[in-house]
Design a protein around this nucleic acid. Structure first.
Length: 301
DNA sequence: CGGCATACCTGCAAGC
DNA sequence: TGCTTGCAGGTATGCC
């Protein structure tokens, strides 16, 4: 599930339990997720305090203190990616007591609980990932921008870096479908399959038109680039807002952060009526680059 | 370089 | 019921 809005929701949900606390004990229950864990992963975390939790694209970045020796210089960054099925759950093991559903967990943990952070504030933060497409890395801050995982990342879609002019320029001369260009993390970082479909619908643009055709006939950012830029930002902000409201009562669900019932306009709605007012079209499902695209061929041109 | 298919891994639903 | 097939929200890699 995790695209940018879900990762941001997870970040906000984890912040309180993680930031300011130390890793008292870390359980790493297997040698790898998608990639091997860093060398001495557990030892490099235990005893270390978390100074902050940020997000870049779909990555969570835990800023670590350097401990006594490196106190003046700061510590490593714990980079975490949720892949397709990664999720964090917070279990409060002190204070007011734990909610009932947390008590169901057996000693060895649920299936696919791969990492457990036991924090100094009593929080137990569990990383569960059925498909193990997620991964964690420890990176020195100075090496972050040159790191293989980060150096190619494009602009943050919710930042001021994403403008109609940027998008038109980045997509210029690309004959690839508009949808593929939006999914390309080297151009815009953080969009995934769902929100690309949703943004294209909101902008009234077809996923199959070429990326280059976003610009107007003079090659300048025109109405289409403006619409798409605004749609990308609003689709993401709306989803983050929905996630934020779900955070308040996440304990009522299953304790997982960032997983809530979204309602999408087109994603997963093949065969249904287009929800756009006054559009009589039907949502289609097609496959582009091996992945499902949902759109309305009537109002998306 | 650009663009595409493939691989990674498990679970689930649908179809036979 | 049980088997097979296809599909799932991400990214790295290798191939043309």
């Amino acid at each position: 599930m995790p695209e940018l809005p879900e990762v941001e929701t997870v970040r906000r949900g984890l912040e309180g339990a993680l930031v300011g606390a130390r890793f008292e004990r870390v359980e790493q229950r297997r040698p790898n997720l998608r990639f091997p864990f860093p060398e001495r992963f557990v030892a490099r975390l235990e005893g270390v305090r978390v100074a902050g939790l940020e997000r870049r694209a779909k990555y969570l970045l835990g800023r670590l203190d350097g401990g006594e020796v490196l106190a003046m210089h700061g510590g490593e960054v714990l980079a975490m990616h949720l892949g397709m099925s990664g999720r964090f759950t917070i279990h409060q093991t002190n204070g007011a007591g734990q909610s009932g559903q947390y008590g169901l967990q057996a000693d060895g943990g649920e299936a696919h609980d791969h990492v457990v952070f036991h924090m100094s504030n009593g929080a137990r933060i569990v990383y569960n990932d059925v498909r193990r497409f997620g991964f964690m890395a420890l990176i020195w801050p100075g090496e972050l921008s040159a790191h293989k995982l980060f150096r190619g990342l494009g602009v943050e879609p919710l930042s001021d870096d994403l403008t109609p002019a940027f998008m038109a320029h980045a997509f210029a001369r690309k004959q690839t479908p508009l949808k593929s260009a939006l999914l390309d993390q080297k151009l815009i970082a953080g969009l995934g399959n769902i929100y690309v479909c949703e943004a294209l619908h909101r902008a009234g643009l077809s996923p199959v038109r070429t990326a280059a055709s976003l610009a107007n006939s003079k090659g300048a950012p025109g109405a289409r680039a403006k619409r798409l830029t605004a749609a990308v930002k609003s689709v993401l902000s709306d989803a983050i807002a929905a996630g934020g409201s779900s955070l308040k009562d996440y304990q009522q669900a299953d304790g997982s952060l960032g997983y809530f019932q979204h309602s999408f306009a087109v994603y997963g709605r093949a065969g249904q009526n287009c929800p756009r007012a006054a559009c009589r079209g039907t949502i289609q499902r097609i496959v582009q680059s091996g992945r499902s695209t949902f759109f309305c061929s009537r109002c998306q041109r």
